[in-house]
Amino acid sequence: MIPLVIATAAAFLVALGAIALYAPLEAVQGVAQKIFYIHVPLAWCAFVAVGVLLVSSLRFLRRSEPRHDRLARAAAEVGIVFATLVLVTGSLWGKAVWGTWWTWDGRLTSTLVLWFLLAGYVLLRSLSEGPPARTARAAAVLGVIAAVDIPIIHLSVQWWRTLHPDPVVLRAGDIGGGLTPRMLTTLSISLAAFSLLLVTLIALRRRIAEAEDEVEALWHLPGRGDLAA
């Protein structure tokens, strides 16, 4: 765990240095484009977290091993943190570059829905009162359904916009388009740093999930079975 934290911290020092000093100023957007180097990796991490949620939920449903459930729990919660940051940094970037906090464009909107789905997953877990094993199964099924739904939602939101009769006022723009090699290098470093951060946070959260399960098991010791019911 400690080597992982150190590696993440070091990667972030390098990434921030590269963003501040190595990456060139973008011609049109100027300094505002520096948000790009955190926004895109954040979005990438949020979607990876959903992928982890999907895979570990499926595994848990197949084998019923608690460790898969703990990983799903960790991935969903960390996913919310990243999805929130995607929305906030995207909004700030939008305000700086396009002059608006929010446009109802496809990518932004489906990220917002993703945030809702993850929040719903975490709420289901924290509000469920039945036996823990049942809560875990219910959450795993929800995790699979939400992950399968995300591409469908994305598709429908995309059609919703492009087939809209009104002209689209603002476009998200070709983000990946005009990147110089230096920008690409900086983005890769930042991507690596954020991926490490994702792994670290999920690992930390998974440790806590283990402790949560232990406490839950203590509540269900034979002596207090009647009280815990």
Binding site: K34, I38, H39, L42, V88, T89, L92, W93, K95
Partner: peptide, 9 residues
Amino acid sequence: FVLAAYAVL
């Protein structure tokens, strides 16, 4: 805006 984004992060 850039400072705000990094601060929020």
